[in-house]
Structure formats: C-alpha cells, structure tokens
Nucleic acid binder design. Structure first.
Lengths: 185, 185
DNA sequence: GTCTATAAAGCGATAGAC
DNA sequence: GTCTATCGCTTTATAGAC
C-alpha cells in the first residue's frame, strides 16, 4: 500500500467480495499487508470507519465522474452518454458489483443509512435533471431516471448470479437506446 | 417453532435481515427459541445446511407459485398476471428482499452457486416461455423476461436503499404495463 | 507509522445428560 | 428431540515496544 487512497480502494474490493459482515480484520491484514496496529492507526474505529471511508470515496468518485457531468454538461444528452460510459467502466463491464447496493440489502444498510440513501437519490436526481434538460417532462424524467438506476442495480445482481457480465453490458445498451427511442416531447 | 417448515421459514427471514455471513448461531437460537443442540439435530452441517434448506424452500415456492403457472397456464397472459401478483405478495409489496439476489452479490454466491444460478435462469426461461406463447418472437421474449426479472431485483435494492417500498410496487406496475403496451406481433 | 503480543468476547461445533 | 456445558478457534480491539 503506497498511500491512503490506494488502501481505501483495496478495502472497497475486499468489502465487495466478502460483504461487510463477512470481512474480517485478518483478511484485511492479509490483503493489504498492513498489521492491525497500522489499520487501527488509520481507522481508530475499526471496520466501520474503513467502510465509511470507502463509501466516502465512492461518493466522491460518482460526484465527480457522474453526478456533476449529468447536471452541468452543456449538452444534456452528452452528459447521459458519459454516464453510461463511466458506469460501464466503474462496474468493470459487469464484473464488479455495486457496494452500496449490496450494503442496502441487509441490515448493513442501517449502519450506513445516510450514505446508502443519498448515493441513490443523488444519482436519480442528477439523471432526472439531465433528462429534463434534454426535453422530457419532469415526471417522465424522474420515472426514467429511477428505471435506469434500478436497472443497473438489477443487472449487476443478475450478471453475478449467472456469472455472465454480458447481461450487464447489454442492459446498459438497452437502457441507453430506450432514451433515444422515447419521444422527447 | 411448531414444525420444520415454520423453522426454515424463520431461518429465511433471519438470513434476509443479516445476510449469510452476518447471521450467527446465537441469533438463530434467540429468534427460533431452539438451542444449538436442536439446531444441529435438524441440520448436522450447521449454518450452511440451514441456508441450503431455505434456498430449497424458496425454489419450491417459486416453482409452484410462479414458474409452473407461467409455463402451464391456458392463457399465457393470465400466467404472467399471476406472476406479478405472486411476486408482489412474496416480496411483501417491497418490504422484503430477495435472499437469492442478496446471496448472489458477495462470495456467499460461490457456496450456493447451483441454487443461485438456477433460481434466476428458471425464472427467466419460464417467463420467456409465457411471453412467447402470448405472441412475442423468441428473441424479444427472452430479452423482455431478462429485463423484467432484473427490474424486480433492482427495484428491491432501490426500495430498501430509500426505505420506500412504493418504488417496488410502481416498478412492478410499469413492467406489467410495458408488456401490454408492446406490440404482440 | 508499524509491528508483536495479548486480552476479552463471540464464533461454529461437539459431547453427553436427560 | 432438547438442553447445558464446553472445546478450540477466530473475532475485534488494545497495549506497548521499536
């Protein structure tokens, strides 16, 4: 581990693979090469604080690479295209799950309720904003945004269940095409 | 606990709330009222065998209430309507998650790969079969079935993240309406 | 900042009485 | 079939040397 950002990034991968409850300090020491002393030096509150840091990093990444472009791109449709490209890269073409979605499903959610909740609500509202700017009525935009974000989450679940990441990539394509195919009146 | 079926049902709820790794024997004894001796009498292989039993029960329920009706209903569209009603009831109008989907996301999947994989592939193929019988071309039916199953999973994730089960119910409605709105040519 | 050693608690699992 | 007691191990977390 060279710096804190790289450490947090690796912590994210460990949580993705094992879940929050399924991740042990001993696995973290093995994967990061850092002893418990070092880990508690960086994160005095232990595993919870590590997960908080990971969630914060995820939020920062999506703010920078997805939410702000969606809200501020000159051409709203370009911003949406960029979102699909960024999401495809982030989830490694269907080979990487969404940690926030995984946390949402069991009682891990309650420990990180704020982060879990705003991750998705920020995403949906930024996407709805772009859809609205591209010509959709507000209600239609909101509904489409919800459908797209939820479709991405479902595709990640299904892709992993079938060990077939292509389910994810073709879902992204379908969602993207539906925007183009829907009447912009 | 009165009988084995009721016990397995309660085990399912415990796994839903805590995840597989997050569920401890002591929580199970507390919730079921059964001591460890009794639990190991019913499930000599411990927690893994309990989860196997839960997954088997889930599969049996879906076979009986969803997959077989989809394949064998006289009117294919009636079978699909019944699926949406059964799914809405099963997931308690968005208040209950899909345990199989949750298992799929982390490495719990690898321990129950067969059950996780066939649950979704059976569902999609049964639904695609019904859609085909209702007049859709085979490729369209397969794509729609995948979209619907994945939409259900995504809606459960999003509903829990927002503590808003209505996200699930309105997603079901949207998916159901899209079938009716799509050309049955 | 990183390590080793260790504490205290909880874990899954087993044994054996009843 | 259910219980209590217990084993051996792993867990999170802390203390303290370097």
């Amino acid at each position: 581990m060279h710096d804190r950002d790289e450490l947090i990034s690796e912590l994210g991968e460990i949580f993705r693979e094992n879940g929050f409850a399924g991740t042990s300090l001993s696995e973290i020491t093995a994967r990061t090469g850092l002893g418990k002393g070092s880990l508690y030096h960086f994160f005095p509150n232990g595993k919870s604080e590590m997960a908080e840091a990971v969630l914060h990093n995820i939020d920062a990444w999506f703010q920078e690479n997805v939410f702000i472009p969606l809200r501020e791109s000159d051409d709203a449709l370009d911003g949406i295209d960029d979102m699909f490209a960024a999401v495809n890269a982030y989830f490694d073409s269907g080979n990487r799950i969404c940690l926030v979605g995984a946390f949402a499903l069991d009682n891990t959610r309650d420990q990180f309720l704020q982060e879990v909740s705003t991750y998705f609500s920020d995403w949906i509202s930024a996407l709805a904003n772009a859809l609205k700017r591209s010509g959709f009525a507000a209600a239609v935009a909101k509904s489409m945004a919800e459908e797209i974000v939820l479709g991405i989450q479902g595709a990640l679940v299904l892709a992993r269940s079938q060990e077939d990441p292509k389910i994810f990539t073709r879902t992204l394509k379908r969602l993207q095409q539906r925007i183009a195919a829907t009447d912009h009146a």
